[in-house]
């Protein structure tokens, strides 16, 4: 939380306010994009997109899991709602700009989070977690049975030949959209940490009964966290059909998304916005390296294995290890 972070920074530069932080993020994002254009290797954009997607997914999961302590296992449900809402929109209005699809996917996934949370967040946290596991199965069943978006066969999405606004390869445009989403999600996560909302979340995580007794409207706050978290996951999924160009339930609901989105914050550290970023860059990078050099089958084990190792041996994650030393 804030003062912990402040203490770390005592003697160093004072903590940035919300707007300057956002500007710094935008400058960094612009720098990354400019560097990518200068490199001009389409593989860099292709691989970078995956890491950015995981930064968004991991941060989104962390808003609920890390901040309030409620574990969402249904990441693929929210992610796929975003992805399939884009497939649906592509079929009925192919000319719709991608950022608009991202917003629609986010709103739909957020609404599902709201309904789900309203039904199960009054109970002990484990019931919420179990319900989210089941949610992933049921959304997959619904999509598999819905022929309009491809059903079990899957759906093809044709990318525009040239990227809008920036020109060049369309993957660059996808990369840019995901980069923008990263900026939004990270700025939101950090703003939450430093606001009264963040304190309320932390109180819920530490002791829900004591939080209520201190005036914290716990159900409302948990719903806010669930909607934000689910909504951002939906947003992360919305560009997916354009990235893969062929989407079927098996790939859209792949367990890899869920494991990575949980593993990355836990490996990086759940107590601050930086944790999921560190986790996503490290694990995402490592996975890509292993996929290229060893095999694609081995890389999927990395996240699961690292996650189990970290929750056992380093529960505060990499960011926590670093802080403890100082």
């Amino acid at each position: 939380m804030v003062s912990l972070a402040d203490k770390q920074q005592a003697g160093a530069a004072p903590a940035l306010g919300g707007i300057p932080f956002l500007l710094v993020l935008i400058v960094i994002a612009a720098g990354i994009f400019a560097f990518g254009r200068w490199l001009n290797i389409s593989y860099a954009f292709f691989a970078g997109y995956v890491v950015l997607q995981y930064i968004v997914l991991g941060t989104a999961w962390n808003i609920l899991g890390g901040y309030t302590g409620y574990v969402n296992f249904g990441i693929t449900a929210f992610f796929a709602i975003g992805a399939y809402s884009s497939v649906f929109l592509y079929k009925i209005a192919p000319s719709l700009p991608l950022p608009l699809m991202v917003v629609v996917g986010g709103v739909l996934a957020g609404l599902v989070g709201l309904g789900m949370g309203y039904l199960t967040l009054r109970l002990r946290g484990v019931f919420f977690s179990i319900a989210t596991l089941a949610l992933a199965v049921v959304v997959q069943t619904l999509i598999t049975n819905w022929d309009f978006v491809g059903g079990a066969r899957g759906a093809y999405v044709l990318r525009p030949r040239v990227a809008p606004l920036i020109g060049g390869d369309y993957v660059q445009y996808l990369f840019l959209v995901m980069l923008g989403l990263c900026v939004v999600v990270l700025a939101t996560a950090r703003a939450i940490e430093r606001s009264g909302l963040g304190y309320g979340f932390a109180a819920i995580r530490d002791d829900e009964g004591a939080a209520e007794a201190s005036g914290v409207p716990t159900l409302k706050l948990k719903l806010i966290a669930t909607v934000l978290s689910g909504g951002f996951m939906g947003m992360a999924g919305a560009p997916l059909p354009y990235y893969v160009t062929y989407l079927d339930p098996a790939s859209g609901f792949s367990l890899n998304y869920a494991v990575n989105a949980i593993a990355m914050p836990l490996i990086g550290g759940t107590s601050s916005w930086l944790g999921p970023v560190v986790g996503a860059v490290l694990v995402g990078g490592l996975q890509e390296y292993i996929r290229v050099t060893i095999s694609s089958a081995a890389n999927v084990l990395v996240a699961g294995g690292l996650m189990v190792a970290f929750v056992i041996a380093a529960p505060e994650g990499i960011v926590g290890l670093f802080r403890r030393k100082r």
Binding site: M1, V2, S3, L4, G196, Y199, G200, A202, A203, R205, D206, D207, G209, A210, A211, S214, G215, V216, P217, S271
Partner: peptide, 21 residues
Amino acid sequence: RPFASLTLAENLRIPILYAVN
């Protein structure tokens, strides 16, 4: 039943933010 991850000052901040305010 203190809020274990918050400092003492922050523990008191919770009721000020959520009850008083």
